[in-house]
Design a binder for these strands. Structure first.
Lengths: 73, 73
DNA sequence: CTATTTTAGACAAAAAACGTCTAAAACGTG
DNA sequence: CACGTTTTAGACGTTTTTTGTCTAAAATAG
């Protein structure tokens, strides 16, 4: 879930994985793995991504749909 | 941040760490470590906790304050 | 087509997570 | 207060996950 969202958001902004990596203070390879969901996001990574892309953690983690409805209620 | 929130929410519901552990399919020791922030939350744990406590990931991760204002905007 | 940029596989090393066992702390009841 | 029960967290070792580097493949641009 979060992989697809990260890739979408990144491409919307026209950023490369390396650019996002820079913002997250990690390697490009790590961002690649986030998008592929080969590794799990750390809470720090989640928080950084929310700030970078101005989105909620709920959106990033797929806890809300496109309409913004929360799936955890 | 998330440690304090988890502990608060758990106690509001009058649950023991063992009870939460059961819901998350992990050991009581792991829930203890989440509350102490000795280990990081996995995305799965975050999602399970949001469903269990009916709160947003933003709240759990401290991306919003008590008034609900988002800190990532 | 060629050069440049971007992405992802393989590998090894380092870090993080996890459960178990157990002691300490907190809680309740007589 | 004592006693038993429940709850929480330390220590330890093991397993799993994450990470970077190096590099090749894929995509993009000129």
């Amino acid at each position: 879930m979060y992989g697809k969202r990260i890739k979408e958001l990144r491409e919307e902004k026209g950023l490369s994985q390396a650019a996002v990596a820079c913002a997250l203070q990690c390697s490009q390879r790590t961002v690649s793995r986030y998008e592929l969901e080969q590794i799990d996001l750390s809470t720090e990574a989640i928080i950084s991504l929310c700030h970078l892309f101005k989105v909620s953690a709920d959106y990033l983690l797929g806890l809300e749909d496109e309409t913004g409805a929360k799936t955890y209620r």
